[in-house]
Amino acid sequence: MESGQRFSLFRYAAPNVFYPLAGRLAPWFAAAAVGFTLIGLYLGFFVAPTDAVQGEVYRVIFIHVPAAWMSMFIYLIMAFWSAIGVVFNTRLSAMMTQALAPTGAMFCFVALWTGALWGRPTWGAYWVWDARLTSQLLLLFLYFGFMALTRAIEDPRRADKAGAILALVGAVNVPIIYFSVKWWNTLHQGASVSLTKAPSMATTMLMAMLVMAFASWAYTIAVVLWRVRSLILERERHTDWVGEVLDARGAQA
């Protein structure tokens, strides 16, 4: 931290401090996202070998799996920020939660869509009522519910707090939904990547998938930082510092 200033965890929780920081960080993450995507797609489409059983169609996993991971991670991060917001009553954490939701829903949709495209040639059906697909679909509804609730409440403070409660209730329910649906029906192939046993896929395939996972992380961070900047400007539009920022921007144009 700056010289002489005591390190404070909450320094960047102030929107006017976070706004310029987010502005400085976002382009770097965006560049990283583009870089990782290019490398990951190159590895995935040109370097990784053709799958012995599934042929070329398996290559959709380089988008499908990172998107599915990301959609679940983002809900966890939303729950994390919601808990922070409930405990410390910080405004920025609620803005982060709301900035994350659309990206999470997008990844959820991408995972479902690419899964359907993969399922048609592999399983012979675009959709099967399997545990993972179904819980992913329910996760999409949880995202929609969160976004609908926070948009329906006009007072931003109430929207923040209501959204935080909903995200936390949802986070408690996500594992319950997952295991109940798993019990209900399981057809999806088991996880190919796991931390406890050696992965059952070629190293280049794994590399490509991990690089794509990094790409989706970087993309998410960049997009969320930009979105949170807009939210900050909108929420803090009555303050002096936003006026200065907008004036400076007007002078540049």
Partner: peptide, 15 residues
Amino acid sequence: LLALLVLPLFVPILI
């Protein structure tokens, strides 16, 4: 809105 919020959470109970 209420339906959208709670119906996904009701799925395990239905199952």
